[in-house]
Design a protein around this nucleic acid. Structure first.
Length: 184
DNA sequence: TATACGATCACCT
DNA sequence: GGTGATCGTATAC
C-alpha cells in the first residue's frame, strides 16, 4: 500500500518515526528494489541550524519549501547523494533524511546466503538504488520510479533516538535528538 | 569571479 | 582515532 500525501503532512518528527519499518521502493525499468527503512533524521524549518533551509530559501532548498510527499535530493561532498522526503505544510521547509534501509530479498537468484543487504548510510543507499538529483522534486505518493509503502509495525519499544550525524557545526541544534532508528 | 565547505564514505594508522 | 576525494552551493568580494 503506497503511502499518500497526508502521511507526509504531519509533524516532521512524527513522520521520521512513522517511516521506520516502511519500505522504500525504487523502480528502474523492469527491476524493483524494495528496502525497509531502518534509520531516519528530521530537519525542521529555518530555525534548525542543521537544516539547509536555515540559510533561507534558495535554489537548492526550493524543494523543501514545496508540498509534502516530494523527494528532496542533493549532492554532498561532490560524490554522494542524500534522499529526503518533504514534510509538513507547503511553504514550511522541513524534510526527513532517509539514512539506512535493509534489503531482504536476494538481488541474484541462486545465491546461497539469505543475508539481508544493509545500506547503512545515505550515500550508500542512493548509490545502490541509483537515486540522484534527476529525481529531485519527484512526487513520491504517485508510485512511479520511487515511492514508499506501509511496512512492518513498530512500537515505542523498538524505536531509539540519538543526535543527528555530521552536523556539529549547528550550534545548539546539534544536541537535538532528531535521529531515529529501529532496535529489534 | 573567487573561495570555503559540506545531512559521507573508504581507507589509513 | 584521522584524512582525502571531489563538486555544487552559498557567500564574500
Amino acid at each position: 500500500m503506497i503511502v499518500k500525501k497526508p502521511f507526509y503532512q504531519k509533524n516532521t518528527l512524527a513522520v521520521a518515526k512513522n517511516l521506520l519499518g516502511c519500505f522504500l521502493v525504487r523502480k528502474i525499468g523492469k527491476k524493483t528494489i524494495r528496502g525497509m527503512i531502518t534509520e531516519t533524521e528530521a530537519y525542521v524549518g529555518e530555525d534548525d541550524l542543521a537544516c539547509h533551509a536555515s540559510r533561507g530559501r534558495t535554489k537548492r532548498t526550493e524543494t523543501m519549501y514545496g508540498e509534502a510527499g516530494r523527494a528532496y535530493i542533493y549532492m554532498i561532498y561532490g560524490i554522494y547523494h542524500c534522499l529526503n522526503v518533504v514534510t509538513e505544510k507547503k511553504g514550511f521547509p522541513a524534510a526527513v533524511l532517509i539514512r539506512s534501509v535493509k534489503i531482504f530479498e536476494r538481488p541474484m537468484s541462486g545465491r546461497k546466503t539469505s543475508d539481508a543487504i544493509e545500506l547503512d548510510g545515505p550515500g550508500k543507499l542512493c548509490g545502490f538504488m541509483k537515486i540522484d538529483r534527476e529525481l529531485n522534486g519527484l512526487n513520491i505518493s504517485l508510485g512511479k520510479r520511487l515511492w514508499i509503502e506501509k511496512g512492518i509495525k513498530t512500537s515505542a519499544k523498538n524505536i531509539r533516538n540519538s543526535k543527528r550525524i555530521g552536523i556539529d557545526y549547528a550550534r545548539h541544534c546539534r544536541h537535538y535528538l532528531w535521529r531515529f532508528y529501529i532496535q529489534f
